[in-house]
Amino acid sequence: MNKIDIGNKEITITSSKELYIYDKEANNRIYNIEKDVVLKVYHYNYDSNSKVVINLNHESAEVEYHYSTINYNDNNTSITVNHNIKNTISNIYNHGVNVLNNKLHFDICGIVPKNIENCICNQENQIINLTNGNSTILPKLLIDNYNVSSSHSAYIGKFKEDSLFYLMSRGISYDTAIKLLVSSLLINSGKDSEELNMFKENIENI
């Protein structure tokens, strides 16, 4: 794993890498991705606002962004991907668990201007309300070019009762079943890291 300091700031990514981030305070980051660079980010967020801007500034720049958050208070997540040049790729996965009756808002935007071709711009968003939280998702794709492959999805709701029934039918208690499902939603794709371990503790304490 290639680790770099990733505090609240603007950074330029010049070589392909994976970043692991754990936040529990409001954070604000801008990524500028260079030519032929693939950036994978695993961003774990605990109950705070996040604002992320990703600029794909050179050809063959690619970003895969996995954002996972556990929410207790009113929080907003904003992720914007600017495809500033042709032949660029973005795949954004945002998963949140809203624990209490508060507000969790995702505003996710992929932008491909008119003269920018051959881009892939995808986003997938899910928020699970564990109680009666007020969650909202704006899955925005501002695509102004026909030669672009793009998709978006947004789901807000509870865990499927069939999944809970299946887990519990093997003797797993309701609380443990919920934790298993939360883990599967939030850390499914994450590799072992210090940041992931901190986030796992948060899941354990839900």
Partner: peptide, 16 residues
């Protein structure tokens, strides 16, 4: 049987 993405068979069996 229900599909549960992200929960591995082994993790599930260990927990159960």
């Amino acid at each position: 049987p229900t599909v549960i993405d992200g929960v591995t068979n082994s993790e599930f069996l260990k927990t159960a």
